[in-house]
């Protein structure tokens, strides 16, 4: 509940503040957001599976974000940044889809 409220609060904050993304962060923010979304959906799924742990969520959230940003950073350094971004987004997207599918099965039995 509280994390959900935090999410909504963050959304509202962003809506009202309209901050500019610093240049150095621009390549990493989209991937980091996708990674965090993956962590959130994974958390919801684990909740429904009954194996949710706050600590695991925090660690997976942070590690997801950091690893995604690191992969993109590495790709940038190697000259394949855009391709690696695509790869990360595809993988995370697949995970999000599978998590959402699991959540759906839990909640709707369908």
């Amino acid at each position: 509940m509280i994390p959900a409220l935090g999410l909504i609060g963050g959304l509202l904050l962003g809506l009202f503040l309209h901050p500019d993304v610093p240049l150095w962060l621009q390549p990493y923010l989209p991937v980091a957001v996708i990674a965090a979304l993956d962590a959130v959906f994974g958390a919801v799924r684990s909740m429904l599976d009954g194996i949710f742990s706050d600590k695991v969520f925090v660690v997976s959230f942070l590690s997801n974000v950091v690893v995604a940003a690191l992969i993109v950073f590495m790709g940038d350094q190697l000259g394949v940044g855009s391709q690696l971004s695509t790869a990360v987004v595809v993988v995370l997207g697949l995970r999000i889809f599978s998590n959402v599918a699991a959540i759906r099965r839990h909640l709707f039995h369908a």
């Binding site: 509280i2 994390p3 959900a4 999410l7 959304l11 962003g14 809506l15 993304v21 989209p30």
Partner: peptide, 25 residues
């Protein structure tokens, strides 16, 4: 719990980042 508060902070950061990214895009 401390972890729950941290999760909330992370969720807030996620929301903030999402809106920011959308706005930037």
């Amino acid at each position: 719990t401390k972890a729950n508060a941290l999760a909330a902070v992370l969720a807030a950061a996620l929301g903030f980042a999402m809106v920011t990214q959308v706005h930037q895009n």
